[in-house]
Design a binder for these strands. Structure first.
Lengths: 349, 349
DNA sequence: GGTTAGCAGTCGGCGTCGTGGAGTGCTAAT
DNA sequence: ATTAGCACTCCACGACGCCGACTGCTAACC
């Protein structure tokens, strides 16, 4: 039971829902008469005014100026989200779009994230963010060494969940592709399935025996470490234009501010990693993020993938006045859809 | 010899240079008195006014309204660029920044492009774009097959210049990692160094002999085809926030327009691929792009890499009022710097 | 007590007006 | 060809006033 349900009688709860719903649609402060007209509540505007005064008292709505309608505060959106959250499925139309956007990319996990971000941002007309699935503990699946020239090779590292990293490794001595291939085979035999920590444990003893192998392994562990550290893999961001067409960004300063929020890694990184906890959809409204930068924005995110194995994040960012019903159901559906794809990577069909 | 140098005597040329330079700095229509004060020309404002009337007649400048100063037209920027182009080097400070931004990424061509875009956008306070180097004819260097589960493998394709592609390949039959490795070795022996067309020529005869191999080769050629077709590889775009802080984007509509230009692939793709011809820096000013969308923007780009082998693009996008001197020298320097890195991939040190 | 009609009062949005000042174009003199 | 002088243009900006939308309050009503 939320705070609102104890504080407010049923009529005031509906009223608050109407206010939030109308404001989400129109972006205009909502007036008592408008509510009376739009939603056939069985009371007069005067009564609604009294109730709205109460809602203001309790911090659910505020007013731009003394004689203006009410605009929802964070608490009102929170109430609204709890109240309408159960509504489950996105439209068939959206489901079809998801399939047709992602299925052509079936073979490429990067493509999944890219496609998901694109279709999501089109659906909610805000910024969509998707990361590729990433294992919490990066493990080597297989590595490959490609001859570039005598003293230089490309190390290609395949990790769990088809994640790839590459890096150029220079050597002190000349070395042929055949030798590199042989080395790769040896290393694969020894190191396959290991994490950075494992590699360090296994490899230490042999150190010094082969300078080329040592160089490769050093680079290898560095890449693995980097994978574990960097929270957020490849990130696809889509739909800034959509978001800026929302009325809250009519002024140039707010538009630039929005661009900075989206461009600045650090702002989002926090929310993306720390908050995407449980399996279900998370909604972070305005000040709930405890981030000054995100004060006027809401984030709706979910993790997807196979728990314990590889997880990615998909979500949307927009002004606190966003269509939460659509956002939540779309994100939930996409997360499930992507989880299905990731799952198919692991088990036989 | 440009049109301007025949049309204009020396004083008018200097005058035009001053007008463009001042406008680039201040973004305010420049008045005759301002010029007289700022640059000690040995003539009175009245004379300058006469000259400016002439410049307007010839289409080099225009006026926002009848009694306002002059703002440069595309032709004026073109003249300015030709006139100041020879100025060669960026500041030491910039050179140092380039090194410190890119050298840590020495091993990763993706990192080069990313770092270059970041440092460039900071230098010119506009949007910077960089693509990774790409061979005009994609050729296989080496491929790798990684077992995902019995009926599915990850194909990793390494092309020239350390470019990577991955794709999941499903099979009709179960197959082990050992078999996959064997297949990869066989295919590498046969196909290494070949282009998509080559592969099709070489492979046809054996078709039908091995369903798994056929599936891999089919995917392989598809990936190669895709590489050749898609003009522009991975593209890194940086600094939209910087650009939006320029005074031309004070109004919300122009800001959203700018976001759309940057977000829309097709707009830039044309300019990036077709125009980046010769080895040196290209400047496309406003309407010269023949693109309605880019009418108010200029692009400064250069190709980098090894001609005939692998080429990438680096450039900047901004309003026609941009600091061309800085833009050109920065882009030129970065292109040379990146070319050096690409070159080192190919030849022994 | 909760609800409602009526009404005075508030405030933003918008169009009008007027003014100051920057800057031009023209003319006539040098 | 250059320049001083001057009348004229046009924008930017603040003041003003009005309209209309809404509220808060009071008093009546169920």
């Amino acid at each position: 039971m939320t705070t609102a349900t104890v504080q407010l009688n049923e009529r005031r709860q509906s009223l608050l829902e109407f206010i939030v719903g109308d404001y989400i649609q129109t972006a205009v402060p909502v007036a008592s008469q408008q509510i009376a007209k739009r939603h056939r509540l069985r009371v007069s505007p005067a009564t609604i005014r009294n109730d709205m005064a109460e809602l203001e008292e309790l911090g659910y709505i505020s007013r731009p100026h003394a004689s203006a309608g009410g605009v929802p505060a964070d608490a009102a959106y929170r109430f609204y989200v709890e109240r309408v959250a159960p509504r489950p499925r996105p439209s068939r139309r959206f489901e079809a779009r998801v399939r047709s956007a992602i299925e052509p990319e079936a073979g490429d996990p990067e493509g999944w994230a890219r496609g998901a971000a694109a279709v999501l941002s089109d659906a909610v007309l805000n910024v969509a963010i998707a990361t590729t699935p990433r294992a919490s503990h990066a493990r080597i699946k297989q590595l490959q060494l490609v001859h570039l020239h005598d003293r230089q090779a490309l190390l290609v590292l395949v990790m769990q969940e088809a994640r790839l990293r590459q890096h150029i490794v220079p050597f002190g001595e000349a070395i042929s592709q055949d030798e590199l291939t042989g080395l790769a085979v040896r290393l694969n035999a020894t190191l396959s399935g290991l994490s950075a920590a494992d590699v360090r444990r296994v490899w230490e003893p042999v150190l010094g025996y082969d300078a080329v192998a040592d160089a490769v392994v050093a680079e290898l562990t560095r890449l693995l470490d980097e994978e574990e550290r960097e929270g957020l893999a490849h990130r696809y961001t889509e739909g800034l234009g959509h978001m800026l067409s929302q009325p809250e960004f009519q002024s140039a300063v707010s538009a630039r501010e929005a661009v900075e929020v989206v461009e600045d890694d650090s702002t989002l990184r926090g929310v993306l990693s720390e908050r995407a906890g449980a399996g279900s959809v998370q909604v972070i409204i305005g000040g709930e993020s405890h981030s000054q930068q995100l004060r006027r924005y809401s984030v709706v995110i979910a993790r997807y993938g196979t728990p314990g194995q590889a997880m990615g994040v998909i979500g949307i960012l927009g002004p606190t006045r966003m269509d939460y019903v659509r956002a939540i159901s779309s994100v939930r559906y996409l997360a499930d859809f992507l989880s299905g794809l990731v799952g198919a990577l692991e088990e036989a069909p």
